[in-house]
């Protein structure tokens, strides 16, 4: 699936309505902040702010927290690493190994940062449709187009890719069933055999994907599609007062907690 935790859920909330550019900018700031604050109170404030955003976005609590599962092992590894390698006041000594109070705090802090980043990212994907996200990203990266980066083309590629993710999953399932009907055992046995058993599904999947890509390209060209700078959109992004306010609030928060 997508690398981003969580998925878009259509709903009507103040956060859903924000301009994707404002939302992505604000989310970026909120993801950096946990790494740049020092005081314990600031940590709590950040948690409070993220919780407030989640409440405003009408995000269901359980699925939101479940996105943390995706980084569970990463969190464990980070915690263990900091726990055992940070020097300081000894907390416990087991033979050669000494763990410290500082290690406990540093490990906990890393986990806290990781969790906050994941939740903010999940809130962003939860409240922003993939299409909006691509538009926003394209708009934010626009300055790079002057340097010769094909921003518009990349945006188009991303939009199309996201559009076909569900289609691919449907096709994969159908293909797996079709091969199972021919006696194939898909996804069972030892790792090497399991990998090999995917060939009858992956090869046709790629064949279908390439054929579809060709058809799509022809269809787009037949309709005169070009990634020209003069291309217009049905839905224009509009940066309203509320978006400005949201950005100002987040920037204000950033100044407040990092002071």
């Amino acid at each position: 699936m997508l690398l981003l935790p969580g998925m878009y859920m259509a709903a009507d909330s103040p956060i859903h309505r924000l301009d994707p550019r404002a939302k992505m900018g604000a989310a970026l700031v909120l993801m950096v902040l946990p790494f740049s604050v020092q005081r314990p109170l600031a940590y709590l404030v950040l948690i409070g702010v993220v919780a407030a955003v989640a409440w405003l976005a009408r995000a269901p609590l359980k699925p939101l927290l479940r996105t943390l599962r995706t980084v569970f092992w990463l969190a464990v590894i980070m915690f263990v690493f900091y726990f055992f390698t940070t020097p300081g006041r000894p907390l416990l000594t087991l033979g050669e190994i000494t763990v410290t109070w500082e290690g406990l705090i540093a490990g906990g802090l890393q986990v806290y940062r990781l969790c906050l980043v994941v939740i903010v990212a999940a809130l962003l994907t939860y409240t922003t449709s993939p299409l909006q996200m691509t538009h926003g990203l394209e708009a934010l990266l626009c300055p790079l187009a002057r340097l010769g980066v094909p921003v518009r083309e990349l945006g188009m590629v991303m939009t199309i890719a996201l559009r076909f993710v569900p289609t691919f999953f449907d096709e994969m399932e159908t293909l797996a069933r079709a091969q199972r009907a021919r006696g194939a055992e898909i996804g069972s046995g030892p790792p090497w055999r399991r990998l090999r058993s995917l060939v009858p599904v992956m090869v046709p999947l790629f064949v279908l994907a390439f054929r579809r890509a060709e058809d799509l390209a022809v269809a787009m060209e037949a309709r005169g599609f070009r990634c020209s700078p003069h291309r217009t959109r049905l839905y224009c992004l509009s940066f309203t007062r509320w978006d400005g306010l949201a950005v100002l609030l987040v920037l204000g928060l950033a100044i407040l907690v990092t002071r």
Binding site: R182, P204, V207
Partner: peptide, 27 residues
């Protein structure tokens, strides 16, 4: 029970016709 799906040619994956048809019996 043999089932040929709609557009069964979409499930073809082998390098030769022989190997493709042999996939089922080999399984």
């Amino acid at each position: 029970v043999g089932l040929a799906f709609q557009y069964p040619e979409q499930q073809i994956f082998e390098t030769t016709v022989f190997r493709e048809v042999a996939f089922g019996p080999r399984n």
